[in-house]
Nucleic acid binder design. Structure first.
Ligand SMILES: NC(=O)c1ccc[n+]([C@@H]2O[C@H](COP(=O)([O-])OP(=O)(O)OC[C@H]3O[C@@H](n4cnc5c(N)ncnc54)[C@H](O)[C@@H]3O)[C@@H](O)[C@H]2O)c1
Ligand SMILES: NC(=O)c1ccc[n+]([C@@H]2O[C@H](COP(=O)([O-])OP(=O)(O)OC[C@H]3O[C@@H](n4cnc5c(N)ncnc54)[C@H](O)[C@@H]3O)[C@@H](O)[C@H]2O)c1
Lengths: 205, 205
DNA sequence: TGTAAATTGTTAAAAGATTAACGCTGCTAA
DNA sequence: TTAGCAGCGTTAATCTTTTAACAATTTACA
């Protein structure tokens, strides 16, 4: 199985490759990609082993083919579908961010418990009552969820999502979720990142 | 030096300890803290070595003292000050999130290039022109920055911040910043997290 | 065509992080 | 008291990730 850190970097390489193509470049060396991604060239080549490489010694990688391979590796045949729960400050920002971007990922439904938000459309995404989550998730074939509700509600919301068939969650609430085996969770804890940077700014350099 | 991962967990323990205290608990065992933080108890004890522990065999940790030690370890004497650049969807959400929370971290100034935002106050934080960044940062004694501008602008903004004396950056723009030695950067790449969860939901379990 | 220079793919070494192990201490209860 | 248990702190072992090394290729050009 491909290591988590490698997947993170491959996601980065995808963007780098896409930028290079946009600039009219057709080929690149591992060290060029590395520089743009902020990693070592050996790490780039090592990572490419997981996606099946096609570089040529002394002339690098064909960027269009590389792009295809990364896409094929990273994403499914049909775009993966997310739903998002909690259309507050953060939820809306996330919807704004995704609106009309990201061909391979889409946010197909939003949920909130606030009745005032029901049936409103935020950045192209319809908001449903959290009570209808199971039904909507099943109907839309959604398999992934974003949690952007207050910390106290996060665990309960996660449970609802999982009962509805969600298998992977990106959690913005600052609480570690307790979930069954086989559910993929990524906790994105903003306050923690700020503390971490503050700490290392004080304690290294 | 304390490993990055350990710092991340200690930040988590802080919250766990604070929750336990709020519930009226006075002591806890490493395995209780571990459970709540979603880690192993040996990891908790191992991590505590870095902050200097005071647990007692067979009766765990005094939570109030532990809290004090974590605070002392993680945070400086005066609260660390951040500024944030880019008061768009994400920037506003972050300000909302921080408003009146987090005693040990504060966001003291916001910057944007949009003149319409100048001098407006968002969730208690005044927005200045990015052109005044150096002056405001110096005057307010700010040492940390959050970047929430479009990707194309991120590098230039980072440069401005560093010239103004900022030593640590939390970067939400999906581009790796190229910065000099000694500057601490944490890239928080939302799209990448969504891709990562999508990938592992498809490819494990 | 052949030689030098550069870069790949892969394997091996080094570094870093997690988990387990265990001696020792303090608590509880006979 | 003392026996027995439970849990701390620390060190050692395992596991993961990163970095380096290098033989095999490809290109460029004499
Ligand atoms: N705003 C940020 O920048 C930020 C950053 C990092 C993390 N977070 C975390 O993200 C979460 C949301 O933050 P926010 O600032 O958007 O909060 P918010 O209060 O603005 O929004 C929360 C939304 O969740 C809805 N909600 C509450 N309980 C619900 C439930 N059981 N089911 C469905 N919807 C429910 C509310 O109606 C509200 O619309 C919090 O846990 C916060 O700690 C926020
Ligand atoms: N919205 C999200 O949930 C989200 C999530 C992850 C990452 N991001 C990233 O965060 C960044 C901001 O996202 P957003 O949705 O808030 O965008 P946005 O367009 O809503 O806001 C960007 C803000 O930055 C300001 N700005 C632009 N250039 C500037 C400069 N040189 N100096 C100062 N201010 C400047 C603009 O005036 C605007 O107010 C982007 O890089 C985006 O990719 C956003």
């Amino acid at each position: 199985m491909t290591p988590q850190k490698t997947i993170e970097r491959i996601s980065l390489y995808r963007r780098v490759v896409s930028d290079l193509l946009a600039k009219g470049k057709n080929r690149a060396y591992s060290h060029e990609i590395a520089k743009l991604a902020g990693v070592k060239s050996s790490q780039v080549r090592h990572g490419f082993m997981f996606i099946g490489t096609n570089g040529k010694a002394n002339s690098g990688y064909d960027l269009r083919e590389l792009q295809g391979r990364i896409e094929g590796f990273l994403t499914a045949d049909k775009p993966d579908s997310y739903c998002i729960v909690g259309i507050g400050n953060l939820g809306r920002a996330v919807l704004a961010f995704f609106h009309a971007r990201h061909k391979n990922l889409e946010i197909k439904a939003a949920f909130d418990k606030d009745p005032a938000l029901k049936n409103r459309v935020f950045h192209g995404c319809r908001c449903y009552s959290i009570d209808d989550a199971k039904e909507v998730i099943r109907k839309e074939g959604i398999s992934l969820g974003i949690i952007a509700v207050p910390a106290e509600q996060a665990q309960a919301v996660a449970q609802i999502l999982i009962e509805a068939g969600i298998r992977g969650i990106v959690n913005f609430a600052p609480v570690p979720l307790k979930l069954g085996q086989g559910i993929v969770v990524e906790n994105v804890d903003l306050a923690m990142y700020l503390e971490k940077v503050a700490f290392f700014t004080r304690n290294v350099s």
